[in-house]
Structures are given as C-alpha cells and as structure tokens.
C-alpha cells in the first residue's frame, strides 16, 4: 500500500511538471497526453485520472480523446516497437507478406506485445520511404527493400543487442 501512495505523489508531480510547460490550459489536452506518453511510454490510468482532475475535464472526455487517436496507447509497449508499413506503395510491393512473416517469427498479432516485453508489433500507413518499399521501422531505424527472407536476420540483430 505504501508503494502505491509513493507512486501517486510522483505521478502528481510528473503531471504538474508537464502542465507547467504550458502558459494556458486551453487546448493543451492532446499535447499533455503526448508528453505523458513520452514520459511513461504509454498512458497509465493513474496519470490520465490526475490529468483530468488538474484540467477539470471529465475523465470520460479525456479517454474519448486518448482512444480516438491511434498514437496513444493505454497499455505498456515492448522495448522494441516494430512498425510495418502498409501504405499504398508498400502494399503493392508486398507489405502484407512482410507483416505475415513478422507475425510468424515473433508469434504475435498486430498490436500485440511479446510476454517478455521485448517486441511490440504494429502497422502504419506510410512512413515516407515509399521509394524503398516494402519498409519497416524498428524504433527509429528504417529498413527498406525488404523480402520475407530478410526478416529473421533483422530480428536476430535485436536479439543479440539486448544481451
């Protein structure tokens, strides 16, 4: 119980720090949620509740915004976020096959995270590297001109990295 209490004070502090960055409270909900996500990697319920209270916006409205935009995540994500492009250019050059292979290699569904919290698999619509289609991004690195055969090796490199 003591632990929970401790966490709460730190959440309140974090949220207050974030809100301090804005001169007015008008229209900052999305930016504040982005800041919270930058802090925690996702939107923990407690932080959302605190934010709602501080901004005097009903919790339901805050969740309304948080669930509307695909950028926000309500549960923690893996250490490595893999985003497969399913934009048009990647689609016509076989992006779906890349995704299938990733699902097979990681044994994950789109949107899922491995149990060891190592990988999250997502899809995006165009990351602007269409010339290299099909493309995927792992964290901030882009990999282009992919074929399904290249996938295991790419993932393998991340396996080694974290050891």
């Amino acid at each position: 119980m003591a632990n929970e209490k401790l966490e709460s004070t730190s959440t309140i502090e974090t949220i207050e720090n974030i809100l301090d960055r804005y001169p007015t409270k008008d229209g900052i909900l999305i930016s504040a949620l982005q800041d919270i996500q930058n802090e925690y990697g996702y939107l923990p319920r407690e932080s959302v509740e605190t934010l709602a209270k501080k901004l005097k916006i009903p919790l339901s409205s805050v969740y309304g915004v948080a669930t509307f935009f695909s950028q926000f995540h309500l549960s923690p994500r893996g250490e490595n976020v893999i985003r497969t492009c399913l934009g048009t250019a990647c689609h016509v050059r076989g992006g779906a096959k890349i995704l299938e292979k990733l699902q097979e290699v990681l044994n994950l569904d789109v949107g899922g995270t491995t149990e060891d919290m190592k990988y999250t698999l997502e899809s995006v619509a165009c990351i602007g590297a269409c010339g290299l289609a099909p493309v995927l991004m792992i964290n901030n690195d882009t990999f282009g001109r992919l074929t399904p055969e290249k996938i295991p090796e790419i993932i393998n490199n991340y396996e080694k990295d974290s050891k």
């Binding site: 399913l86 934009g87 048009t88 250019a89 990647c90 689609h91 619509a125 165009c126 602007g128 590297a129 269409c130």
Partner: peptide, 11 residues
C-alpha cells in the same frame, strides 16, 4: 499528409 503512400509535404 494522410494519404498513405505520399510524402510531398514531408519532403
């Protein structure tokens, strides 16, 4: 720039 497969504005 929402069109999935276009990157003019970005460039």
């Amino acid at each position: 720039e929402g069109d999935p497969g276009a990157f003019m504005d970005r460039s």
